[in-house]
Design a protein around this nucleic acid. Structure first.
Lengths: 337, 337
DNA sequence: AAACCGTGTCGAAGCGCTTCGACAACCTAT
DNA sequence: ATAGGTTGTCGAAGCGCTTCGACACGGTTT
């Protein structure tokens, strides 16, 4: 393993000079810099991460805590994770992957050991037990998600409440009066995941203003669960003509079932999905949808974190405005029969 | 930040004693150990990762390189990543997330800087450019996937060749003679991803032995691409009654299209999927499938790596035997018309 | 009673880097 | 010519830990 000292010797300068060439924290003459850089290349030198972390108390690592559960939005989580990793690299950081499993202990462990300089938390619950550890001056952190109390926190999230409202507005514009919301699995609501509850709340309050009726049903993944859920909905509200789907893996089953029952999309019923664009365009009917900007969220989270670590940037709540794209799954409500 | 020295002082022992309590590398009397452990708890001590890495030249970090592309098997990748992270923790390791983007440079960087003690590589191509760096005594590593030349490497993978063979055998048993294989996106084949090519090769050679005809078509994700692909297949081989699908996101579109064309599954055509069990049971027809044991692969990879790091364990190729589960999507071929 | 051994503890060195203060060399302003 | 300021480089301290050799102590063995 090549060390700083060896590079210094090879270049005929002192170790500190090499260090300054690397960090740029003091001015170095062009000729010296040149010489040092050449030695670095020739010897294939890579600074030792541990030594660097010890001396500078900076690990250049960002911890990313992803949910262990895979009962929702797997591709979204994946996309966020990849965006985080990619963006972090452009700022000179690496990413440590933590699962939600360890919970608050992971936060303690990582911040206590200086393993990471900062953390990004996903799958934040409204009243998340990890939050007290992050508030105030502890570990610099950014949440992807929005807890109930955001004091002292930085959050990046889609504006789910506005997303819900947007979906229902779109359906209202087309004259739909009876709306069914097909949600995530019950477990997602039970653990008070912010995005699910907020979407519903935004949707309901806008629906009320617009005088629409809303029926919400959580739905497990899979075709069979969707079949049962749909049957119940149509039983309870036979006049339902608008569907809002917030559950990626329910989309295709829903479309198949509607087709099977002779309900044409979008002639008889309209469907608005809340999902990544990729899913919307690959479905059997190109879906009118509100996009989940996973990459954007991951990227922003890292950028806020890097700003904090550089001493710029403040606590802040960033809610991305939802965008609805009209595709082939929504249209005017059929004339009342 | 609490340091070792502070713990030592608090417990009235020397720093080295505390270190030995922590590592268990020398015997410590029960009373001393007790006292030290209590001080650790009281002070909330966490060893500093950088210092530890520097002194011991061990970071206790495993790097996991995941593909940047998301054109295939996203849930599988995710599941593997989570299994790796979880298993690593049970052995006292953390996981560093690298994207394939940096390619061989990432390998050099990580091993050169001592950031990680070992690496796990996913999405290995048959002739992967990262391999030369891993061969021999360099960085301890495990591949999830099987390159063309495995000398000096440790690999964990599903036996894809046997998987292909198994699919075709199952269809043969039911009397199907004309088999269509719906594969991953063309890009996956173009970059010579081992699993795709091996599956095909295993399937073809077994088909030949059994006297079956095979038509293979790569397929982009999404409904429209599947529609085009299916039309071409049925045009070229109208007598096709057996389908093998190795592309998660093509499964549901295929079923929908078959239904739409009045071809009943499994009465008229049989479908065998290669996908995680979860996908198979959630599809609109419960799918006969060969499972992709994602968790198992992630877990095994970590365990092999840990064994290597502990000085146990050798280079080895582990091919997991495929298991086919018969569900509702396959049955006897219809009598020839 | 001497020589010996195992057990438990300590002190000190050192891992490879960053960073601070010192200072030589040169340049500009007096 | 001299004081004052820059600029570029160096030496040394120290980050918090691991680990090696040393050694004190009590228990065996001769």
């Amino acid at each position: 393993m090549v060390t700083l000292a060896e590079v210094a010797q090879h270049a005929g300068v002192s170790a500190s000079t090499v260090s300054y060439v690397l960090s740029g924290k003091r001015s170095i003459s062009a000729t010296t810099r040149e010489r040092v850089e050449q030695s670095i290349r020739q010897l294939g030198y890579h600074p030792n991460a541990g030594a660097r972390a010890l001396a500078s108390s900076r690990s250049n690592i960002i911890a990313l805590m992803i949910p262990l559960r895979t009962d929702m939005y797997v591709p979204v989580m994946m996309e966020i994770a990849i965006a985080v990793a990619t963006t972090a690299r452009t700022h000179g950081y690496d990413v440590l992957l933590l699962t939600g499993e360890e919970g608050p202990d992971a936060v303690r462990r990582v911040s206590g050991s200086g393993l990471a300089d900062a953390m990004i938390l996903m799958d934040v619950q409204l009243d998340d037990e990890r939050l007290p550890l992050l508030r105030g001056a502890g570990q610099p952190s950014v949440l992807i998600g929005l807890p109930a109390d955001t004091t002292g926190l930085t959050c990046v999230d889609l504006d789910w409440s506005a997303t819900g409202a947007l979906c229902v507005e779109h359906l209202a514009t087309f004259g739909h009066r009876d709306i069914a919301v097909i949600g995530e699995a019950p477990a997602v609501y039970e653990r008070h995941t912010g995005f699910a509850e907020r979407t519903l709340e935004g949707l309901r309050s806008r629906a009320k203003e617009l005088g629409l009726r809303v029926l919400h049903r959580p739905c497990e993944n899979g075709y069979d669960a969707m079949a049962v859920t749909l049957a119940r909905i149509l039983d309870e509200r036979p006049g339902t003509t608008g569907f809002v789907v917030q559950n990626e893996s329910a989309v295709e089953p829903l479309l198949a079932l509607l087709r099977q029952q002779g309900r044409a999309v979008p002639e008889d019923v309209s469907v608005v999905a809340i999902c990544p664009d990729q899913v919307a365009v690959q479905a059997s009917v190109r879906l009118t949808s509100v996009a989940i900007p996973a990459q954007e969220m991951g990227r922003r989270a890292v950028e806020y974190l890097v700003a904090k670590l550089d001493g710029r940037g403040d606590d802040d709540i960033v809610l991305l405005a939802p965008e609805l794209t009209v595709r082939a799954s929504s249209g005017p409500a059929p004339a009342a029969s």
